[in-house]
Design a binder for these strands. Sequence first.
DNA 1: TTGACACGATTGTTCAACAATCTGTAGATT
DNA 2: AATCTACAGATTGTTGAACAATCGTGTCAA
Lengths: 227, 227
Amino acid sequence: MTLDLAAAGQPAVPAAEAVQALLRQRIMEGLLLPGARLVDQALAEEFGVSRNTVRDALRLLAADGLVVSVRNAGSSVRTLTSADIHDIYTARRLLETGAILQSAGATDAMLEAVDRAASASEQHVLSGDWGKVGTASLAFHQAVVRLARSARVDEFFNNLAAQLRLAFAVMPDESAFQVRWVGRDRQIADLILAGRRDEATALMNDYLNESETQIIDGVRAAERARR
Amino acid sequence: MTLDLAAAGQPAVPAAEAVQALLRQRIMEGLLLPGARLVDQALAEEFGVSRNTVRDALRLLAADGLVVSVRNAGSSVRTLTSADIHDIYTARRLLETGAILQSAGATDAMLEAVDRAASASEQHVLSGDWGKVGTASLAFHQAVVRLARSARVDEFFNNLAAQLRLAFAVMPDESAFQVRWVGRDRQIADLILAGRRDEATALMNDYLNESETQIIDGVRAAERARR
DNA sequence: TTGACACGATTGTTCAACAATCTGTAGATT
DNA sequence: AATCTACAGATTGTTGAACAATCGTGTCAA
C-alpha cells in the first residue's frame, strides 16, 4: 500500500506527517501494541516512501513519547511502566485540578463544553456504546483542561492522554474499566458549573487516584501474564 | 567548522543530536535571535554534516517549539507574540502553584533544593554577577516545579522556559528585569519551607502576573522599535 | 555456566538529484 | 500610484542506494 496523499478536496500534507499520523492512529487503536517493533525499512516498503521519510515520522512519534528508539538497535512502541503511569497521573492531577481552580475566568462556551462532554459520556453508557465511552470521557477531561486557557497545556495534556492509551492497549477489558467513572464525570461537571470548585477538585483528585490505581493494577496483571 | 563528536572521554552522541544541542545553545544564548533564518544547506556546510542530519535536528527543535518551519519556504527561530507569552505564563501559574500545593509530599532534598536555589539567586545579586541571576532564578522555578514529582511536568516546564528565553532575546536589559524578583524567590521559598502553601501560591501568582506584564511590555517595546 | 567474539539486524549518515511549494520581484494593467 | 499576475530563485521535501556504527543474539570455547 502506498500513501494516498491526495484525498478528495484535502490539501496534501507532507508524506512524513502522513506516515506519522497513520502510525499514531494504529498505536491509538491498539493495532500496534506496546513493544511492537517499528523497522524503518519495512515501513518504508509498506507505505511506499523512502526510509528518511519514515525516520522523520518515527522521530516525531519519539518526541511525543509514543515510540522509543535505541541507536542502531531499533524503534518500538513504548511500553508504559507503573512509574510512567504514576508520573502521567501526577501530571493529570496537577493540570485538571489546576484548571478547575482557574475556571472562574472561563467562558460560558468552555463550561458548556464540559457539560456536553459529561452528557455525551452518559448517553453512550445508556445506549451501550462502550466503544465510545472512553473517547467521550477523554473529551470530558480535555474540556476540563481547556478551562485553564493555555494552548500549550492543552497540547501537553493531549500528549499525556496519547501515552496513557498505551496502558489500555495491554488491559483486558476497557469497558469494564470505564463504566465506573462516567457517573463521576457528571458529578464533577455539575460542581464546576455550580462554582463549587474546591469540591470539584476534591472529587477529581479522588477520581484520578482511583483510576491510577486501577490502571496500575491492570498493567501489573498484564505484566504477570506476559511472563 | 565540523562537529567534534569525540570530546575527551565522552560517549559520542548521534550527529543530529549534537547539531540540535548546538543550535539550541545558540538560541538560548541569544546568538540566534527570534526570526533568524535556519537554512538547512548552510547549516550542513557549517557543521560538516549532511542536509538530512540538519533536518533531523531542526525537526526536534520545531517539536520543542523553538523553531518554526514553513513547508518549502524555510525554518527560523520562533518569535514569541504577546499571546504566546500569556499562554506560557498561564501554563507556568498552573504548574508552579500546583506544585507548591503538592509540596506536602515532597522530600527534604526537594525542599532543600528550593532553598538553595533561592540562596544562589541572592548570592549572585550581592556579588553583582548579573549574568547568573537569570540562570539561578530559573533554577529556583525548576526546583519549585519539581515539588510536583513528575518527570513529564519537569520536561514540559523546561520546554516552556526555553521558549520564554526567546522573549528575553529581544529585550534590552535583562539584569534590570531580573533584580526585581530575587527577593521574592527568597520569600516564596521561606513560605514553602514553613508549610504556608496558600500564602506561597498567592505570592507566586503575584510574581508571575507581574513578570508576565513586564515581559509583554518589553516585547511590545521591541516590536515597536523594529518597525 | 560464563565470557568473548562474530554476525546479522537495524539505525545513522551521506550524497546528489529532482519535486514541491513559498516568497519576492518585475512588469503589466488599471 | 496601486494592484495583480507571472516567473524565477530560494528553500524544503523526498528519493534511493551505499556505507558506517552500534546493538543484540547466538555460538563456541574455556
